[in-house]
Amino acid sequence: MDAYTVSAEFYDVLQGRDERERAERLFASPARRARSGIVEVGAGSGLVTQVLARAATVPVHAIEPNPAMRALLMSRLAAAPTEHRARVTVHPERVQELWPRQDVPQADLAVCSNVIATLDPGQRHGTWAALARLVGPQGLLLVDPPPCALPEAPRTKVLPQVPVGDDTYSGFLSETPETDHIHLEYTYQVHRDGELLREEREEFDLWPVAGEELRQELADAGWVVCRPSPAAPGRGELLTARVAEHL
Rank of each mutant, 00 (worst) to 15 (best):
L131D: 05
P121E: 02
L119V: 00
L98V: 13
V115F: 15
Q123S: 07
I116A: 13
L134F: 04
L131C: 08
D144R: 07
A130R: 09
G122L: 09
V88L: 00
P146F: 05
P146M: 10
V88F: 00
D144F: 02
H125Q: 14
C112L: 15
G126M: 07
E152L: 07
V164C: 09
T82S: 14
E83S: 11
R155K: 06
D166N: 14
S113M: 15
R87A: 00
V143A: 15
R94D: 05
V158P: 00
A129L: 08
I116R: 04
D167T: 14
P154N: 07
D108Y: 03
S113F: 15
G165F: 12
R124W: 05
K157E: 15
L141Y: 03
D166T: 14
V90H: 02
L109E: 00
P105C: 04
P163L: 01
L142I: 10
P137C: 10
P145N: 13
A110S: 12
D166F: 07
V135R: 02
T156M: 12
P137R: 15
A132L: 05
N114S: 15
P92I: 07
L140W: 02
Q138S: 11
I116S: 12
S113G: 11
L150T: 01
D144Q: 13
R124H: 02
E93K: 01
P163H: 00
V135K: 04
W99I: 02
A110Q: 10
G136E: 06
L119F: 05
W128H: 08
P160N: 04
E97H: 09
V115Y: 11
A86T: 00
V135G: 04
I116F: 15
C112I: 12
V164F: 12
